[in-house]
Design a protein around this nucleic acid. Structure first.
Lengths: 327, 327
DNA sequence: TCAAAAGTGTTATCCTTACACCCATGT
DNA sequence: ACATGGGTGTAAGGATAACACTTTTGA
């Protein structure tokens, strides 16, 4: 063990899901992701990514911040490593001869109001355009009407449903999509995407030779290579993290109303939240404090403005918006 | 963006923290980690690791399982990727000329009763011998007597304590080590190790040129390169995961008493648990079922034997032993 | 005066934590 | 009989989730 071996010509790519919320100040925020290149007739949308140069940069994160700043001008706040994909099968396009790319996925947060200098192609896109089934803010998303029957069909044709060791497709479907009395757990974004991938219902899955089920409806916009998988990981991680770390304030302006905060939490989690309970939760968690100012830009009664209370970091081990199943 | 670039000669190493619990059947279990090479006079302890060969193996996990099986004979159950380290500074030994090793850290679980074939050097070692400050099962660990004064001294000589944006050393110390009214959060294994590393109190930190504080006591056994950091990540992840996934049963025999289960949970979390509440918790979560058999090997009254109820996987989205702050 | 959004009060229920005592076996 | 560990009942307090109503502004 701990053998030495010859260096293999493996290239490290750093791929970032850079997330922001547009209009976090007012009450119709939309969660966005920075795409390096929006989809066109000839190419799919892609996340920004760049090679890691171990000579120039001491760590991955330094390398990532460097090329993101250089190429897009977007200042990154919070940055977190997600997962490293070494999966040849998934990257392979027909005809490839194994480029041996290992890609390290990152989640990064920024504010959406930044100007995209130096990157004429780059743009922020609503992340639910890539994952329409994840947006439950105004109730059950419509894609599910097209999606669930196909998943059910796929679940039912399961070959020899296996022992109790593995969950059956049917059971996974119940747990992931909240059908048959299950609950839709909003944090399981990646698991749902992987499930659709296995079922062959996303275009990405058909690149490595799977047959396309006939007449599959558009299930969100596809992305280059593994990029949609990285975005799914980022969304799931952010949804989960929001509950025990005050990351949401990386996406908010300096001051904001409680309704704006709630709308942003809803935009991220993809769920509708209960107003009174959300406010009580915020108050109890002491993550914000009043600035004393008022905003009269809201349309009705003026709203008090709040700011993030940095001191919570010192006071509590896991400060966040602990929205439960119902809040 | 999304530049193509020339492959750089980067070598991918897979390093695994393979965890097990010895004596999980009886009531003095000890959490163990597989070391490829125990410490000797001339070399430090090392986790098993091997190169990733993208030609032979389609994914990292397949590659990992292959060389672990081949080289140690240990059958891996649960496997999870932890983190990818590309950090040159930390790997560098004096005189190195940048080998450009990127190491992907893994957590893997197995049962401790497996024979270590083919690996005469490999052995299971108690993980608290590497992290003595993490073992609070029988109360406050003694190392803290040596540790805390040094940390306090280091915290107090902080240069220009920074604005409220960053936590001060003092505040981090309070949150991580549970001093001054803080709570010791057992999941933050990595954060504590990194804190000690920053303070220059672990031998690993002194490799990249930091000065050794005079007369530092032995703060757990050091490991090669980043290996203790990977082990810290694995321990923290397992402690956290245990609470919402039934991973503990990967470490238990097929049948076990409730006390054995509690002792194993205590061994992992490093905390003493409250007997009645633990049992109620286990019962409420329905993760086990009685086998009807009894064990009279316990010394006192015979204990009922239980087994893992696989069906919980289908019933609840996050089945685990949700031990809280006190249970 | 009315629409639109801000903001509050209260209660039932469940979960968490803490308490102390009885039971079945081997020696 | 007694030591050893197995196994239970119950109650206080807090968190969660659900309920509907009042207030302040702009148009």
């Amino acid at each position: 063990m701990t053998k030495t071996s010859h260096p293999l010509p493996v290239e490290i790519g750093l791929t970032a899901a850079i997330l922001a919320v547009s209009g976090a100040a007012d009450d119709t925020p939309e969660p966005m992701v920075l795409v390096a290149r929006p989809a066109s007739a000839t190419s799919e949308a892609a996340l920004p990514s760049g090679p890691f140069d171990p000579v120039a940069h001491r760590t991955f994160e330094i390398g990532l911040r460097a090329w993101v700043a250089e190429q897009t001008g977007v200042p990154l706040g919070y940055v977190e490593q997600l997962y490293t994909f070494g999966d040849r099968g998934r990257h392979a396009q027909a005809g490839d001869r194994d480029p041996h790319v290992v890609s390290v996925g990152y989640l990064a947060l920024t504010r959406a109001d930044t100007k995209l200098t130096q990157a004429p192609e780059a743009a922020f896109r609503p992340w639910y355009s890539f994952f329409p089934w994840e947006d439950w803010r105004t109730g059950r998303p419509e894609v599910l009407d097209a999606l669930l029957p196909r998943l059910t069909a796929w679940a039912e044709q399961e070959p020899g449903a296996g022992g109790p060791a593995r969950l059956s497709r049917r059971e996974r479907m119940r747990l992931l999509f909240g059908v048959e009395g299950g609950r839709f757990d909003e944090d399981s974004v990646l698991e749902r995407y992987e499930f659709l991938y296995e079922a062959g219902l996303v275009p990405e899955a058909r690149r490595d030779g799977r047959a396309a089920p006939d007449g599959v409806p558009a299930l969100g916009q596809p992305m280059l290579n593994d990029h949609r998988r990285i975005l799914a990981t980022a969304m799931g991680r952010l949804r989960a993290k929001m509950k025990y770390r005050p990351v949401i304030f990386e996406l908010m302006p300096q001051t904001f109303t409680l309704t704006a905060l709630q709308r942003t939490a809803e935009a991220i989690s993809g769920r509708h939240l209960h107003k009174q309970n959300f406010r009580r939760l915020v108050e109890a968690s002491a993550v914000v404090e009043s600035t004393g100012e008022m905003s009269r830009a809201t349309g009705g009664r003026p709203a008090a403005l709040f700011r993030f209370r940095r001191e919570v970091l010192q006071e509590r081990p896991a400060p966040g918006l602990r929205v439960g199943a119902r809040v």
